[in-house]
Nucleic acid binder design. Structure first.
Lengths: 337, 337
DNA sequence: GAAATCAATGCAATCGATTGAAATTTATTT
DNA sequence: AAATAAATTTCAATCGATTGCATTGATTTC
């Protein structure tokens, strides 16, 4: 790599000390106008750029945010990254991305990478496999601010940003009931994830409100296209199949529609389907999918803003009070209901 | 932030010099086994982690790769990031992501950010707006290795990784013709992008091969869902509409299918559609979309590997010979043809 | 027993920029 | 002209780790 121009180069050429050059460049009042002008001119001429690494070392800060995320290749998460990058960019921070690929082991390595890279703060949505949170605990012990988004834990002293999963699930199921469904299945996420629990709970309470019996047999663990497709096939072939489906994400919902079509059932006539996410695909499926918009972009923005606030504040650990921010969700009604 | 344990802390506690501690930690033969053991034990006990920033300064390297990309929120690009992160991870590099949001202005700022962050190398897919490449030229002049992927320029001395756009377009259109289409429209990308040109050229040559007249009137600039939907509506309402469509990406292709359905036309009976990308959505549309898989994940991997190779080699600028790697594409036949 | 050898450790400079304190130069006052 | 004040500039330490070159002390050799 070509050697970059340093402050020393400028100092030598002008017969000054590095201190003077440094101060001249940042308009320190001690420096005479003449010297200042000379320094700035030469700096511009040589294309001087301050060495960020040196500043990082001195300030013990990198103006970098670490992002630990399950899978980039997933609309919801890429929308979140988009929101994060937007805010980071505006505040002159950079974003380092680490994928866990839904693997606990890799996630632990990611937290180490985040430590060695000395990022100023970390944004985390943990993997489906994660049940032990001590690797995040370690980040916090190192006094690196951590903000969890979407997938969060209450047991750690860290901020959280989540969609209003309970409310989203509730309005989704409520909508199904109002559209005439009485036997509603729920395709759920793993129950170690809070989103799994909250959405199940919203589903449960919406049924309750309308005096519909909550049937354990109608709740399935199916949060991917493949598992949902298989599960939907199984259920729809049984006698007395559900007339409504509330899926924990759009992929599962679209899989249900697909399975229904393959079995010669019509959506929304024979069964209605609601998803959760409002991904690009939701608007493209046939029929178009009714779904709960969880505003990934906003969620990413909020999470990043919250982290930046912590970085400014520098709250000492003993005074730390975690904040939980909930992003309202919104039902987007399309033709699958 | 909590002060991290440094080599000096260890040195003081053991009554040694920092040099000895440093050498002990890296198993330098000069250090006696006793001292080495003591140092390592204390280091482990205190949870010592070498300060990467200090090493960055000393080695003038950050083990970080900069990624400048139009939009994360797009299946193809997120697949590419996935591939890049995969390779970077395996080689102990980190990835910094900068979005241009298809804006030339922002892209220029991104190249500056990449410079101030002192990344070791840069991966670039430039924006649709970009016609002036001097900001990338500046990176190269600073002897920062640059690899372009997907959207590339020949005028700069930099490596390239691209999908075989010509071949992909050719087999796609050839497929349409073999399926009986004779009047085939092309929804193209802007012609300042090489992918736009190459795919148009593949389309052209496939027609030629089958002695089908190339009609300028059948080529449209429409590379987003919205523009494609509008264009498709217009064309399909005219007399003698096309019986086949080759779209430059899946979103446009799906928009065409949608427009056709809205006009009461059947796919693939009345018209056949082929996309380009093989996104998640392609498998979900109804009918499922025939498309050209451009292997985004592989493309990202290859681009990253190529960059890492350059970082190892350190070829001096005057000996630099750009390499162009072409990833073969593959037709995925589904029910839209 | 003095010189040579070798193992083990320490010193000090380096990477680039910053900054409190000291030193120098210049201007002002008496 | 001397004394003081004010304006500039430099010195040197710092951030954390590394490394060529001493230095120390012990052992070996003739």
């Amino acid at each position: 790599m070509k050697r970059q121009i340093t402050i020393k180069d400028i100092a030598v050429k002008l017969g000054l000390s590095t201190s003077t050059v440094s101060r001249a460049l940042k308009d320190h009042p001690d420096i005479s106008p003449k010297t200042r002008a000379a320094v700035k001119e030469l700096a511009a001429l040589l294309g001087y750029r301050p060495n960020r690494i040196a500043l990082n070392l001195r300030n013990n800060s990198t103006r970098t945010i670490g992002l630990i995320i399950p899978e980039i290749e997933h609309y919801f998460f890429s929308a979140i990254i988009n929101g994060i990058e937007e805010i980071a960019y505006k505040n002159d921070y950079s974003v380092m991305v680490f994928q866990s690929n839904e693997s606990y082991k890799r996630e632990v390595i990611n937290t180490q990478a985040v430590l060695t890279n000395r990022v100023d703060g970390v944004l985390v949505s943990f993997s489906k496999e994660t049940n032990d949170f001590s690797h995040f605990q370690k980040l916090i012990e190192n006094e690196i601010p951590v903000v969890f988004f979407d997938r969060v834990v209450d047991s750690l002293p860290a901020d959280q940003v989540v969609a209003d999963d309970y409310q989203g699930a509730f309005i989704a199921v409520n909508h199904l009931i109002e559209k005439g469904c009485r036997r509603i299945a729920h395709f759920a996420a793993p129950q170690n994830l809070q989103i799994g629990k909250s959405r199940l709970s919203g589903y449960h309470d919406a049924l309750l409100k309308h005096n519909i019996h909550f049937d354990h047999e109608l709740v399935f663990l199916a949060d991917t296209y493949e598992t949902a497709k298989k599960a939907a096939h199984d259920i729809l072939r049984k006698p007395n199949p559900p007339d409504g489906f509330f899926a924990v994400n759009d992929m599962s919902a679209i899989a249900i529609i697909k399975a229904a079509k393959e079995l010669g059932k019509r959506v929304p006539e024979d069964l209605k389907v609601v998803g959760f996410e409002n991904s690009k695909s939701a608007g493209l499926s046939d029929p178009e999918l009714t779904t709960v918009d969880q505003f990934g972009f906003e969620l990413g923005r909020e999470a990043c803003l919250m982290l930046l606030k912590r970085l400014k504040e520098q709250t000492p650990a003993e005074l730390f009070k975690p904040i939980r921010k909930v992003i309202k969700t919104k039902l987007v009604v399309r033709s699958s209901t």
